[in-house]
């Protein structure tokens, strides 16, 4: 069912300090589909996107994008590869010294020799698609978090990339722009034949647009499949996440010593007086 993968992740290991984030992750991300990577907060979903984008280097294993090993490319080849990718950051990460229009125009100006009039048309088209054509003269500081994310989306697709990486696209969106965004990701994917990777923990929205899902927890892929197969998956870790149970095999608490002994037996009591 997975044909011609665009991204292949093989036996990926990564840690930060003593904290192991990935322990042997394997994934194949199909071309032209929306693949969602889900998992509880702190499982390293954003880290995974940074590994795919070549900003972090794994300790073991490799990541192939369209057959090229991301971490074996020269710096120059890596930057060339990145022209074929767009990434939507959680914060938007707009350039604060440029206004909305120039932010979206930035990739066009640095990577193409298009005349100004054409850059203008393209930028306005992209801004129209995210509903912010009227906001073109605002600076990033004047935008709300949700608007900034939409401008960032327009910027990410400015060069019509083949791959878009979405880092938590639904966080902090109001219901209307959330709906718009869900539609936008889906439409973009169909219209431009993109490969999309969506990292998210918003289950409902993600299930509605994803063609394929990977669920990661404890540094490993715990389940993968289409939204339908995951919905009926009996693995307690999967059903806990998909159905949103507060505690279960995936603990709510960060690892700590037992609550009572921590509270009662912690620091020695200081004498009063």
């Amino acid at each position: 069912m997975i044909d011609a993968p665009f991204i292949e992740i093989e036996d990926l290991y990564f840690s930060r300090g003593d904290h192991e984030i990935f322990r042997g992750v394997n994934m194949t991300i199909p071309r032209g589909k929306v693949t969602a990577i889900m998992g509880p907060s702190g499982t390293g979903k954003t880290t995974l996107l940074k590994l795919i984008g070549g900003q972090l280097t794994p300790e073991r294993g490799r990541i192939l994008i369209d057959g090229e090993d991301v971490h074996r490319l020269s710096r120059k080849a890596l930057f060339t590869l990145r022209k074929r990718m767009g990434m939507l950051f959680q914060s938007g990460a707009l350039f604060s010294d440029l206004d909305v229009f120039e932010n979206v125009a930035f990739p066009l100006r640095v990577h193409t020799d298009l005349p100004d009039t054409m850059v203008r048309d393209l930028v306005l088209l992209k801004l129209q698609a995210v509903g912010l054509r009227g906001a073109r003269h605002l600076t990033p500081a004047e935008l709300s978090g949700g608007m900034a994310r939409r401008v960032a989306l327009a910027r990410a697709v400015a060069l019509d990339p083949e791959l878009i990486l979405y880092d938590e696209p639904f966080v902090g969106q109001d219901p209307i722009s959330m709906g718009v965004l869900v539609q936008l990701i889906k439409r973009l994917n169909q219209a431009l034949q993109l490969t999309s990777v969506v990292v998210s923990h918003d289950i409902k929205e993600t299930l509605s647009i994803a063609d394929y899902l990977y669920l990661i927890a404890d540094g490993q892929v715990v389940a993968h499949g289409t939204p339908q197969t995951l919905d009926t998956n009996q693995d307690p870790r999967v059903s806990q996440f998909i159905h949103g149970a507060p505690d279960g095999p995936v603990p709510f608490h960060y690892p700590a010593e037992a609550f009572y002994s921590d509270i009662l037996g912690g620091a020695p009591m200081t004498k009063l007086g």
Binding site: Q55, R82, M87, F106
Partner: peptide, 8 residues
Amino acid sequence: TSMEMIGV
């Protein structure tokens, strides 16, 4: 980081 991802 976002500049890097734009390929600059």
